[in-house]
Write a protein that binds this DNA or RNA. Sequence first.
RNA 1: GGGCAUUUAGCUCAGCUGGUUAGAGCGUUUGAUUCACAUUCAAAAGGUCGCAGGUUCGAAUCCUGCAAUGCCCACCA
Length: 920
Amino acid sequence: MKELPKTYEPDKYEDAIYRRSEESGFFNPDVCVEKGVTAPDAPPFSMALPPPNVTGTLHMGHATMLAIQDIMARYHRMKGERTLWLPGTDHAAVATESKVEALLISEEGYAKPKQELGREAFLERVRQFAQASHDTIVTQSKKMGSSLDWSREAYTLDEERNLAVRTVFKLMYDEGLIYRGYRVVNWSVKGQSTCSDDELVYVERPGKLYYFKYGPDFPITIATTRPETKLGDTAVAVHPEDERYQKFIGQIFTVDVGAAKPLAIKIIADPGIDPEFGTGALGVTPAHSPTDFEMYLREKARGNDIGLIPVIGEDGRMTQAAGAAYQGLTVEEARAKFVEWLRLRGLLEKEADTVQNVGTSDRFKDVVEPLPKTQWFVDVNKAFPMKGDKIAGIKAGENTTLKEAMHAVVKNGQVKIVPERFEATYFHWIDNLRDWCISRQIWFGHQIPVWYCASGPKPECRRPIVEVEAPAECPHCGARQLEQDPDTLDTWFSSGLWTFSTLGWPAAKAMEGDAGTGTARDGRTDFEVYHPTSVLETGYDILFFWVARMILMTTYALGDVPFKTVYLHGLVRDEQGRKMSKSLGNIIDPLDMIARYGTDATRLSLVLGTTPGNDVKLSEEKIAGFRNFTNKLWNIARFMLLNTEEPKSAAVRPLPATLSDRWILHRLDATIAEATRGIEQYNFSAVGERLRDFTWNELADWYLEIAKIEGGKSAILNYVLNTLLKLWHPYMPFVTEAIWREVYGDGGLLMVERYPEAPAAPDAGDVQAFALAQSIITGIRSLRAAYRLESNKNLSVVINAGERAREIEEGAAVIAGLARLKNLTVARQAKKPATAVGFVEQGVEVFLDLMGVVDTAKEKERLEKEIATVSPYVDSLRKKLADEQFVRNAPAAVVAAERQKLSDAEAKRAKLTEQLLSLL
RNA sequence: GGGCAUUUAGCUCAGCUGGUUAGAGCGUUUGAUUCACAUUCAAAAGGUCGCAGGUUCGAAUCCUGCAAUGCCCACCA
């Protein structure tokens, strides 16, 4: 017999437990197979960890994903599945680069670090920083107890992932899905780089709508919030059926607004124009508005080139084309100046206040300027032949587009999104998807695998050379002077390959059986064993950024899905529902909470009381509450150890000796069944709450108290504790593993024990008899409290049990013990003693003898109140059963149940009334 | 402007495909006790399930409308 400390102190155990678990090798599925924990032919379960930013630190969002994913990983591992949970980090291109840039400025006195150091030296500094920072996030992830296979750790920017990126780029280029084009892009002046549509954050701000004409003879007034761009207008668009303007369609007006050259404004028709808005006419600026640019493309496709005049440069200032008066001015200065110019000439008709929605760069935090630039794009509407026939509805070789393929895999159920409502959001995003600009003018990232032959004499030397490995010479002229495209790829391009690049693709696929990373021990590669992954668990906020792009890249490159299920968790907010942020000072740091309350408590607080896709309000009190629970579990173990002889880890299901034994085993079985079903249906919160209810309520508050009365529970306590630790392990890896070791010594790790399975359910009648005993006990306790008799140990109870006498007899000792009675009499027929008060529970009358302290008035009041509660219930049931419609239409079982309820309630009322009468 | 979600006890939230006298945790009130745990135990109070209609024998649950709140998307210049 062994005695545990009175309280569980997590920090004394956690680090050692993690170290022992990691060193055991069981986080690696190959080791599990080697050591016989997992059968070689066991079904796989795999997840890729959404890679945290390499320079980040652990926050509650990470903690949430780690907790939920670890629950799945540990559960499936214990189920005997070949479980791989693969970790990694993300280089987070812009975020990391600008962080290092800022550090070099503030700490080392550089003014312009990139220019001063040059590309290679600067990148070296970024890499150093990333490496140092990497260890922080990894160490912190381990603090959460994550059972990740660190031997397979990946990095978005390492050589294997780089190879995957270059390979996919070339594939897409060769099939025409990646193209280089001169298009309007989102340009961050501050960041001196493009950014994608999804990275824009729209901010509302007050603006002015200016109504003006280009010149005194121009027939149409237009409205704009950005007058300075009008220096680059090349058309005016009107609705084709707008009677006011129809006659002008096709005409060209030459106007001089002070730009470098007079503008030739063509009046064009576009059905997208709203005749009701403004003047019903839109000044078209193809160079500085994505929509106007598309209008320009449509016109051009019809053989009508209206032209495009960039008047704003990459430095955010007006260009030479804007005219001598404007060149070099900022956008704001040019706006004021042009408005003034219009006003002086009487061309400005009206100014109106309005609210404009401006796109800002999420990363660089400045207003994004749309301007035309030659960049690399992914064409989402271009047809390509599907690789393989794994996608239902699209045959191998059949032409499809990225949009169609992305749509298909969710529509046909090959990818399920939990909760389902996000599927609609996903489809909507696809419908509005435009070509994806993937090139960025920053240095830290995957440099685009494209080379140019600057000096080549032949015309084809002008074409980009796209290769997976750097070419030695120009294939056309043999020149060795090749220059690689200086741009890097959008970070989401590489993240999009994550589920398969981490499994060794393309190397593992090409070199089957070859040893090395990405090769499983049985000859099959990781890619073959684990792809597609089982579940992708992440926050709903990156559904578009990442989840959708993984589907895009995988359906294209592999003709397969990246994962079968997407589970989306909500955002962690503070008690008031606000986002946690440094500026609000409301951040709850997971490492802080782990230090104070333990990892298990922190994990539970992020999982219980939550639902998929909904935000979680977190408070320190909530975490503290789960710390109490952790301690409760510890003390349950402490109690059991004090009352158990020779605990055996290979606990055999014991035979129950009493009613309460049968009950607790029945409840345990039900809990196992619910936990299994719940986890597989992603109801992590419900399972946790069920386990807590079983542990604290049923086991600790009822059964352990009964064990003190009945005694001789060694075998059952051993079995229940053993099973319970396994059930809790995926949620609370540390305290369960700590107890396991304390109880069973250091023979083995709980994490590789087999998850419990429920045997066929025993007779439910046992539970009913126990439930009756519980009701009787609670009723007696309640009366005790009402009469302030808590410390009176001389109470006697008489039970008028009727048909249920036998059932009650079996629980009599328990009733007497838990209700702390001196005498208990159970009879088929019993009268209320004159000095007793009573209550009715499930048709059974219970009389508590107060030995003369009965307060008649109080008792009368109590009974009347009870009768007043039952009476309306009886009436409503009678009414319901008298209703022919109900009796005819409702299922027989429901009608029978209602009849039973009525007769019970009537009996209860009769007995209460009788008791009341006896008082008078 | 479009879409999605939320609205249930003082607080945080469960309530699956309609059939409970609507639940949990925290908090509150009252009481107990040091024999696993005060990071404990017992008991109690507390809700016309946002509002208004409708479908149904029966609605917190389904439908419609409205309101409040939050989020996402969008080319009203």
